[in-house]
Design a protein around this nucleic acid. Structure first.
Lengths: 230, 230
DNA sequence: CGCGCGCTTGACTAACTTCAAAGATGGTGG
DNA sequence: CCACCATCTTTGAAGTTAGTCAAGCGCGCG
């Protein structure tokens, strides 16, 4: 896979969730950085696994990361892709409820739970920001439920593309480091359906595939229409 | 509808989420009760609507409540049903991201945000509990995503029944105050499919329908098997 | 250069939805 | 208290979407 082609610079932008613009969520948790250590992670390598003890959480510095849960029969659901600036595992209790792996080679900042707890104890307003981050994650999860439960395949992919464009600083050229299978597992579809939809969207002229993992959004408005087809 | 038949006593049990047993989540937010006021709500009446300003949150005292988001074309997804003891709208920022309505006549405790904020300021450990409640909601949302994205119709209903039994104190007789359409909108299915599955489960002997809204779980283990069919 | 993995495309299938209609159920008003 | 009506539920038959199976292609990597 073209891991090296993928944008690998550091992008300290925060997650931009259109649905949830809680003021708290925008406040960065920069205060944590002092107590973090940088870790590297090769493609497909796991940061932690479902069921494991949660000793730390992370912030993505570069690369892309996926968080998923598994089901019998080799079924998997990727609850989210994490881009630079996103926090991983913040919402965890003592046990990890998802497996987190690198989609492309990645670098992350690691924060130990104990150190964070101490810091939050001393600075209560940090707790409020933490709450904001988790809230926006919950809002995102609720949007995803609506998508999975009630949208057609085409609407799902259109939503996904718009969301990714938004998160990548709202450019019209979006790089998708994850495989078609990853996208399918995120949208509750199959690889084949996702692939067919990419082709279909390209035929319709709403996107252009510069490469399998490099999409140009040619018509935002049409894509928006596809995403919300009543 | 049989709103009066439905259990309407006060059940101060907390939500029991099998996936997320964060110790914080179990700690009640009883400290809030002093500053709450009781409100009543008739069947199908809305507590608040998507997009509205969030001035308060609630705890269900009696009855059942649904929280949903809407989509074009009359599509709807009920993110959760709230039973006595559950908190509603805790995870909210300043704007409601879902509409909340009574499934059956209900009574709720209403807490103003301002009052809560003051209380949390004075007692920081309350903030931690709040965090725990939101965390368990996030965990539940992630389970629901797995269900919506990757489970078959039968698995979804089996999961739902087991979950409801669990939340109703783990008895084998579960009352389902919501309509088939409500259940369908929660599981990402249609009314007809849900109805057919109830019939099918009854034929298979894993449940018995005492009435449309009164289910007896005859074989937990078989239901469990249906819920996790690999 | 060739191998392997991931992507694409086609034909067929299955699961679930849609459309339609009959059958319960409970609430209301006489 | 009973009968009627609206609403919800159940069931059947047909239709559609997305899944499955299968094969070929293309790209990047060794």
């Amino acid at each position: 896979m073209l891991a090296t082609v993928i944008r690998d610079q550091e992008i300290p932008t925060r997650r931009c969730d259109p649905a949830a613009k809680a003021p708290d969520a925008n406040g960065d948790l920069a205060a944590f950085d002092d107590i973090g250590t940088v870790v590297s992670c090769r493609r497909d390598q796991a940061l932690f696994c479902e069921g494991g003890e949660a000793r730390a959480f992370f912030k993505v510095l570069s690369g892309t990361v996926r968080s998923y849960r598994s089901l019998g029969g080799g079924r998997r659901h990727i609850s989210e892709f994490l881009l630079p600036g996103d926090y991983v595992g913040l919402a965890l209790g003592d046990i990890h409820r998802a497996t987190v792996e690198a989609v492309s080679d990645a670098r992350l900042m690691r924060y130990s739970r104990a150190a964070i707890d101490r810091l939050v104890q001393r600075q209560p307003q940090l707790g409020k920001r933490l709450l904001g981050v988790i809230r926006s994650e919950l809002a995102m999860a609720q949007s995803q439920m609506l998508l999975l439960g009630r949208m057609t395949a085409a609407e799902r992919l259109a939503c996904f593309l718009l969301m990714m464009a938004d998160r990548y600083g709202n450019t019209d050229c979006v790089s998708l480091p994850m495989t078609r299978t990853d996208i399918a597992d995120h949208l509750g579809l199959t690889t084949e359906t996702v692939s067919r939809l990419f082709s279909q969207f390209q035929c319709q002229g709403v996107i252009r595939l510069k490469a399998a993992h490099e999409v140009v959004l040619k018509s935002r408005s049409e894509l928006q229409a596809l995403a919300e087809a009543a």
